[in-house]
Design a protein around this nucleic acid. Structure first.
Lengths: 248, 248
DNA sequence: GTCCTTGAATTGGTAGGACAATTTGGTAAC
DNA sequence: GTTACCAAATTGTCCTACCAATTCAAGGAC
């Protein structure tokens, strides 16, 4: 929040409002004049802020209508590819396993403590809460950082973005996380243990096990999803059939 | 050029001027007032255009001084992290090895043929030519694509961007490639062979060998670089000494 | 019911001036 | 000759006020 130019301050304030949930995706945010008044700046500045937000892909300005919050999935869709939860998890398996093996020899005591904390946080928070997800995020990113390789960290950031920003992936993960978060804690603990021992091979295997189980659960979940889908369709067909039967 | 908003038209005009070479990187472009007059628009619009260009990373606005064209290498530095050639190569080693192992079971005959072609192209082009680099790029990206995982391909694209867009990395790679491109061809051929045999383990090892040698060469090159640097410094010191000796 | 007009609401753009940060050039002190 | 400092010129920043262009929905004509 140490922006020099006014329009940047306003832009980040608007962004905050959006991210706080005050203006869900697709909705229109207050008019130029109204915003200018409530924020105590001129209309020009508000326009500049909105222009910069548009350039960054957060909103869409429609002339004569208003400025609308972009939906998250079409936001910078240009930068993230469409991948399935399976693909992402496979990539994470191969990438994070090797990353963990590297981290085993490079990790610092502070980072080990950080990992310890995330596990505690995960234990003490509800299973599908945002806090648990945040702890999960910090856990995996910390390991990437602990590999002592900035390229690894960058890749990990991108993988995590796919995890949370791609709607399909997000849904799939949400579907499996509710039922297995206690296992997640155990597996994280096993990984941390291997890192504490500074055992690359063990760390690699622990990480592989973590993701192997995730993939299995994803398979189960997608099967259930497919079954449900089939049931829904047959139900729809039945409606259709009954309707035509009644019509005849 | 079908921009609706005026500021977008102006922004693309300014961008054109920059890219035409009228304002080389680092130079200051005309002031707000001057630009507004020559382009026949108001100062506000010029500023909006410059703000959007700043958001996209093309220029840098300095209050009270002017707006300056950003150098290309620090342009979207915001999106790519600063990593050394060593870090990048380490990440590529661990990532591409696993990626190749995956590709061994998934690769299609067409993709095998594509790889074959890149090796021929590399053989028939000068060692440090752009064409050889392009063949190199296609080789590695094709393998990522052949893993049948779009997330893998995306990661590989990012790794290659670092390879060519980060100046330090680019220089280091250029320094080692001139002397060992014939080995590169052999190693690519070995990898292709393993893929043809559909042998994941062999593919993984071949890729690891490829990058292991690259890292070794990078080490040698960085040593030489360090020696040269030391020589240059001592030379500079000598100049300085002679100067003060003459002055006294 | 459908189509068209109309007017309110909204963003887009202009003009010009006051202000703040930065650069620059000149002057004085050493 | 060099350095330090100060003031003017330059430049981006922000504001007010006004008008133009566009969108959208309500209400009337058919």
């Amino acid at each position: 929040m140490a922006e020099k130019r006014l329009y940047q301050k306003i832009a980040s304030q608007i962004l905050k409002m959006i991210e706080s949930g005050a203006y869900p995706p697709g909705t229109r945010l207050p008019g130029e004049r109204e915003l200018a008044e409530t924020l105590g700046v001129s209309r020009v500045v508000v326009r500049e802020a909105e222009i910069s937000l548009e350039a960054l892909g957060h909103v869409e300005i429609k002339v004569g209508s208003g400025v609308y919050v972009k939906r998250r999935d079409q936001q910078d869709h240009s930068r993230l590819p469409k991948v399935s939860a399976f693909e992402l998890t496979q990539t994470r398996l191969l990438f994070e396993s090797e990353s963990a093996a590297l981290a085993a020899t490079e990790i610092t005591p502070e980072q080990l403590a950080e990992l310890e904390r995330t596990i505690e946080r995960m234990e003490n928070s509800p299973q599908d809460s945002e806090e648990a997800d945040e702890a999960d995020r910090v856990f995996h990113l910390t390991i990437a950082k602990a590999s002592g390789n900035r390229a690894n960290y960058f890749i990990m950031e991108n993988l995590w973005r796919m995890r949370v920003e791609l709607p399909e992936v997000r849904e799939m993960y949400a579907a499996v996380c509710v039922e297995d978060s206690y296992k997640r804690v155990d597996e994280h603990a096993a990984i941390l243990n291997a890192l504490k021992e500074r055992n690359p091979d063990k760390a690699r295997k622990a990480m592989r096990a973590h993701f192997s189980r995730l993939i299995e659960n994803l398979l189960v979940a997608s099967e259930q999803h497919a079954i449900e889908e089939a049931r829904r369709r047959s139900h729809a067909n039945r409606e259709k059939y009954l309707k035509s039967a009644l019509a005849s």
